[in-house]
């Protein structure tokens, strides 16, 4: 059993053996105690991952707001997180749920304020390539976005998501090959 339960971004959890207190765990504990600086450091560390996961699921223009939503939701619920070392996995799950909710709530629109400053318009070619990545299977899509958009290295992706190095490598290289195919034999848009 479980041999085909290969790692995707969903396969994220803590481990049974008690690991040494990591910086991440210490930051989570400090944030739980109300330390805003610790929360800021967690944000710096995990915001690229959350931004990437959301970018893979919702329209570009709405990602930044949702990243904030995810972190605010996380700080409210930190008390329910039993394993501080599972923070990344837990946060990723909140992000995926938030992305799903986003589509359910889209009908509930509100008028935008007149003084709203629009985000800079992204490069059209970049959105075109992003669109191609978003058509890939979930594991490849997430990993490629974390690598190519967010600029994380493979080891950093593994560390943040809980995936093994081998899984991230596979996802990166298979994903890149599929992206090349999707873009017409070359990765050029």
């Amino acid at each position: 059993m479980g041999s085909e339960h290969a790692p995707a971004m969903d396969d994220l959890a803590g481990h049974a053996s008690t690991p040494p207190a990591t910086l991440e765990s210490q930051l989570v504990e400090a944030a739980r105690a109300g330390d805003r600086m610790a929360f800021g450091r967690l944000y710096d560390r995990f915001a690229p991952m959350i931004h990437g996961l959301l970018l893979a699921r919702v329209p570009y223009a709405e990602v930044d707001d949702l990243v904030h939503d995810v972190f605010l939701q996380a700080i409210r619920r930190l008390g329910s997180l039993r394993r501080a070392e599972s923070f990344g996995a837990w946060l990723a799950a909140i992000a995926r749920n938030r992305a799903r909710d986003h589509f359910r709530r889209r009908a509930d629109t509100v008028d935008l304020p007149d003084d709203l400053v629009a985000a800079p318009e992204p490069d059209g070619q970049a959105l075109e390539v992003l669109g191609a990545i978003k058509q890939l299977p979930e594991a490849y899509r997430d990993t490629l976005i974390l690598r190519l958009v967010e600029g994380l290295t493979g080891p950093e992706i593994a560390e943040r998501t809980g995936l093994t190095h081998g899984s991230v490598r596979v996802n990166l290289h298979r994903g890149m090959q599929m992206l090349r195919d999707a873009l017409g034999g070359s990765a050029k848009p």
Partner: peptide, 26 residues
């Protein structure tokens, strides 16, 4: 080349302000 192109989609925003009283010890 893809990194350079797609890097423009990266977030530039900082952390949100945390409303006071949100986080509590577990």
């Amino acid at each position: 080349r893809l990194e350079s192109l797609l890097g423009s989609l990266r977030s530039r925003r900082g952390a949100p302000d945390i409303p006071s009283g949100l986080s509590r010890p577990p």
